[in-house]
Amino acid sequence: MGQQVAFFEVISANAERARKFYAELFDWQVDADPAMGGYALVDTGGGIGGGIGPSTGPGDTGVKIYMRVDDLDAYLDRAERLGGKRLVPPTDLPGDFGRFAIFADPDGNQVGLWA
């Protein structure tokens, strides 16, 4: 069995607008956390959860999927061997949420890894 999609993320230059848009469009529960810089965890009511947050730098806006993996470095290395590019090294998440990393595929699409 392949690696599963574990999380999605919407990053916006206007995170408040994005939170409102997706909450109203899909009837999602979206709760911004001031302690996380306004990043909001999304409860879709079943299935995959996600997050909606503010942009923190040039080129980071858009939609990403995060794949659940057991070894961030191994998957980043594998992505590079297949023509991808490492963008964000393994980084701790706040609390007990684990670690994440981000790479770009050969077409420039950003994909997250979560362990």
Rank of each mutant, 00 (worst) to 15 (best):
L87Y: 05
V42E: 11
G59Q: 08
L87N: 13
P34V: 08
M36V: 05
P106W: 01
L72M: 02
F21D: 03
L93I: 03
V63I: 10
D60S: 07
M1V: 13
M1E: 13
I52H: 13
A15D: 11
G95T: 07
P89R: 03
Q3S: 13
D92T: 12
A104R: 12
Q4P: 07
D43P: 03
E24S: 04
P58W: 00
A23G: 12
G37H: 09
I48Q: 15
D60F: 04
Y39R: 05
L25K: 02
G46C: 05
F100V: 14
L113D: 12
R68Q: 15
G53L: 12
F97L: 12
G83T: 01
D60M: 03
P106R: 06
G51E: 15
D27G: 09
G112E: 09
V88L: 10
A18P: 04
G51Q: 10
D107S: 15
G98S: 09
G49H: 08
G59F: 01
P106I: 03
R78T: 06
G62D: 06
Q4S: 14
I102G: 12
D107F: 09
V30G: 04
D27W: 00
Y66E: 04
R81C: 01
E24D: 15
P34F: 06
E24H: 01
D73M: 02
L72W: 03
Q3P: 07
G2E: 14
G47E: 08
D71P: 02
D107E: 15
G51I: 04
E80S: 06
Y66P: 02
I102P: 10
F26G: 05
G62M: 01
V111Y: 13
G53F: 02
Q110I: 04
L87Q: 14
P106E: 11
G59A: 10
A23D: 12
G62N: 02
D33N: 15
G45P: 06
A79H: 07
F21V: 06
Y22E: 04
P90A: 14
G47F: 13
E16I: 00
Q110L: 15
I11L: 09
D60H: 06
I48H: 12
Y22T: 03
F8S: 08
D70C: 00
F8M: 04
T91E: 12
Y39G: 13
D77W: 00
F26S: 05
I102R: 10
D105T: 14
P58G: 02
L72T: 05
M36W: 12
G47H: 13
E9T: 08
A15N: 04
L82C: 09
L93E: 10
A32H: 02
D70R: 00
P58Q: 05
A115K: 13
G53R: 08
R86E: 10
G47A: 11
T91F: 07
A13P: 02
S55E: 13
R68W: 00
F103Y: 14
G2M: 06
W28G: 09
V30D: 13
L41C: 04
A6Y: 06
G49Y: 02
G2R: 02
A32M: 01
G98Y: 14
W114V: 15
F97Y: 11
R99I: 05
V30P: 09
A6W: 07
F7V: 01
A6H: 10
